[in-house]
Design a protein around this nucleic acid. Structure first.
Lengths: 147, 147
DNA sequence: CACAAAGTGGGGAAAAGTGGGGAAAATGAT
DNA sequence: ATCATTTTCCCCACTTTTCCCCACTTTGTG
């Protein structure tokens, strides 16, 4: 399980240090690809293959399946760390996520997400009121199931 | 698994450098042929034979099967690298894929695809909105399995 | 406060990508 | 069959990118 939010620098060479807490849980062969709402996502190997498997289950025409495969695999790279625990974000990934000199690295359950400042503030941050509302919803939901 | 999207030059002699990351996973005896939506496709040997095997299983009339075999095998060439890691795209392949001075080389799971600029932008590129939609579908799928 | 671990930045060697010259081979015409 | 022309392919040179290594700063911890 990946937890926590970290703000790190992206240097002129596109290098980004993955926080040690998250990195130590990332096995060899993890994959970084493009994610929803304009973030980047790092998948551990099992998560990556699981994702691909589930996509195959969504009944698609051959043409749709080809497009999907091109999107997912074409956008992905193997996640390679240097001796300092950094990965290099490709120019394509940086422009997709709108990342220049800083990035937010966020542990989200089974995956790690990477955001630019602005999008993370907009999408990721939440006020006490929003937490209250969300947790109320969950509680309501549970109540109606338990009954 | 082949991953990633790369834009490379095609020189006056029709030579195209295959990205080192992809090339190192391509065994001797790989095959390049024509693919769907106007791309070229490089198959590792096992993928090539698997493809041909599966096509034999799809119940075709003998005439259709012969036509298919002529198309697939006739369009194919063995994939030969020079000392710099380049292959030569035949004139036929270049005109099929509409490739002149640049090409996109894309890792798509078990095969490598080669595209011209325009077609790749049209077929292969995807916006954050599309990635969001795809991942929504997978999440929906997962929800219905878990239930 | 001292020490260790984590994060940041940059220089330089090595690898990858690009372009062209010229020998060898193939093709075609006389 | 011979010669001319084109094509193929091997080799070399150059440029750009990648990545490996070192050093410094910051943060966290005993």
């Amino acid at each position: 399980m990946f937890l926590g939010t970290y703000r790190h620098a992206v240097d002129a060479k596109g290098r980004l240090a993955i926080p040690a807490r998250l990195r130590e849980r990332l096995p060899e062969g993890s994959v970084i690809s493009k994610g929803a709402e304009g973030c980047l996502r790092i998948y551990p190997p099992e998560e990556w293959t699981r994702e691909q498997g589930e996509q195959r289950l969504t009944s698609l025409s051959p043409a749709e399946a080809r497009r999907l495969a091109r999107m997912m695999f074409g956008a992905a790279r193997e996640c390679e760390f240097d001796a300092q625990g950094r990965i290099v974000l490709s120019a394509d990934h940086r422009s997709y996520a709108g990342i220049s000199s800083t990035a937010w690295v966020v542990g989200v359950n089974n995956v790690i997400e990477i955001w630019n400042d602005e999008d993370w503030r907009r999408i990721g941050e939440a006020t006490p009121e929003e937490y209250t509302r969300v947790q109320d919803q969950v509680a309501e939901r549970r109540r109606s199931i338990d009954r």
